[in-house]
């Protein structure tokens, strides 16, 4: 358990051993379909495909998937509602064909969100960063992102522990104290992150840090069957989405 449900799901997923490039192609295809195909039936089909693939062959826990979409859904619903309410000179009313437009917006967002989540719950960040390196993103940038990812969990754990200790000492009993505690918490986490970086750096320097942070890449061969199924599935989605 690392504390981020989506990350846990990615490491435990049945698709963990698949090539990240394969999964990236599939999910990018679904994301693009969700964006450009008409909401009906395109978005519905993309959302269905993503959910079925995640819960079926990739064996992502349904709970994780549902919990992960709650917050974005709150934004999507508020945003969609605001977009279709018409304000003019003090009068507030529904814009023409408000229901259809709101439905389209929610459809595109939910389908796109499900497709991104399919990638997020099946591919750990380290695999994605390695794929970024292959897409010619500079090594220094990928390494900084890699350190960020690896340090996240330690710092999140610090936040949890410090907050628990503060709460036990009545540090969050009133607003005033809560703000003071949050400030101290942020400062403690920042100084800890610096200390940790310094200790890591000293340890690595002792081991001869000269050519960047090299790790052994895991070789995950791309599957022809998977790629063929991706191409066929996406083609079918586009055909149905455009023709219907």
């Amino acid at each position: 358990m690392t504390g981020l449900a989506v990350d846990d799901a990615a490491w435990a997923s049945a698709w963990r051993t698949r090539s990240p490039v394969d999964k990236l192609l599939l999910c990018a295809g679904l994301v693009v379909c969700a964006l450009v195909l008409p909401a009906w039936p395109g978005s519905v089909l993309v959302a269905l495909a993503a959910v079925v693939l995640a819960l079926g062959p990739a064996r992502v826990p349904a709970r994780t998937f549902v919990r992960a979409v709650r917050w974005p859904l709150a934004f999507v619903l508020t945003g969609a509602l605001t977009a279709v309410v018409s304000v003019d000179g003090g009068g507030v009313g529904w814009a023409p064909d408000a229901a259809a437009r709101a439905g389209e917006l929610v459809g595109h967002s939910v389908a796109g969100g499900a497709a991104v989540l399919l990638l997020a719950t099946t591919t750990p960040m380290t695999d994605l960063l390695a794929a970024l390196r292959r897409l010619r993103v500079p090594a220094a940038v990928v390494e900084v992102a890699g350190v960020t990812y690896r340090m996240l969990f330690v710092l999140l754990e610090s936040v949890r522990t410090i907050r628990e200790a503060q709460t036990a000492r009545m540090g969050h009993s009133t607003w005033r104290r809560s703000y003071r505690s949050s400030g101290a918490l942020a400062a403690a986490v920042l100084t800890r992150s610096w200390q940790r970086a310094r200790r890591l750096q000293e340890g690595l320097a002792g081991r001869g840090l000269e050519t960047g942070l090299r790790v052994l890449p895991e070789s995950r061969p791309s599957s022809r069957g998977f790629l063929a199924a991706t191409a066929a599935g996406l083609a079918a989605l586009v055909a149905v989405g455009v023709l219907l």
Binding site: V144, G146, V159, S193
Partner: peptide, 18 residues
Amino acid sequence: TLLLGAAGAFTFVLSAIK
């Protein structure tokens, strides 16, 4: 590299403080 990574992680974690 490590200091910048720490800064990125801090920014992420700061957005997790309620």
